[in-house]
Amino acid sequence: MNCDEFESCLVDLAGPQGVGSAARTEALRHAIACPRCAARLADERALLAGLKALADGTRNDAAPARVESGLLGRFHELVPMKAATPAPLVGVASSSGLSWKTAAQLGLAASALLVLGWTLVRSNREAAVVDQPPISRSAESFEPPQQKVQKEGASRAEIVPFSLAPHETRRALRTPSTRRSARGSEARARSAARPASPSEGLGHRAVSAFERQTETPFLPFMAARPPLPSEQRQFVRIRLPRSALHVFGLPMNMERAAEPVHADVMLGEDGRALAVRFVND
């Protein structure tokens, strides 16, 4: 063995990785004959002993408890978002290899489901109107007639083409009739979304307001990033336990607690859920 060969196996010779017994014997024989390589071996052994001592001294080092508590705090924020996002769809949407064909097929399928769903909802509602008792005066006064127009428009807006640019989405969501009253209806929806204080006697009215709404506005998830200006968005309709309304501070009709509620989840280009709106059926 010459000095170059010795040098190439020096780390393994001195370290825990080790070398074969034949190579080791040959290397040590070379070190006896070559003071320069013997010194290199001694240095390497001293270095490894120092590194081992350094490793032993820090073996129990760990992140402070505040890191864990901070992470658990974020975990709590993210749990509603994860629960509201159907895993298989997110997996497809977030993969970088999502082809336009897959996206288009997904969009068409979802659009068809939305149309079908809306048709069923509408036919049920029309049937219900025939059987419904007259609306009480207090409920009538709570909802101005203008909102009925908005609801009609908003329900049409539910059939949102998939992967629209944000400005197109806004256009699709707000028809001319709804645009006029959008600001007011959003304010009303927000006020309905606030947990009502029973002491003010608004609890029942808030529940009624939600029950009579076609859908809430899109409510951003707490931990979600804001949508990017040029981002393509996708919408997925899912069913959630009605208790999910509580998570977003929306009033819940306890009589219908066992029934699921429909929700439209807005997904960003990366497949992350950005916002959700609840649809009353």
């Binding site: 003071p35 010194a39 290199r40 001694a42 240095d43 001293a46 002993a49 120092g50 001592a53």
Partner: peptide, 13 residues
């Protein structure tokens, strides 16, 4: 540059 010296590193522990 290291190999030319034979000055030992000493106890790094």
């Amino acid at each position: 540059s290291v190999a030319v010296t034979t000055d030992p590193l000493g106890d790094l522990t």
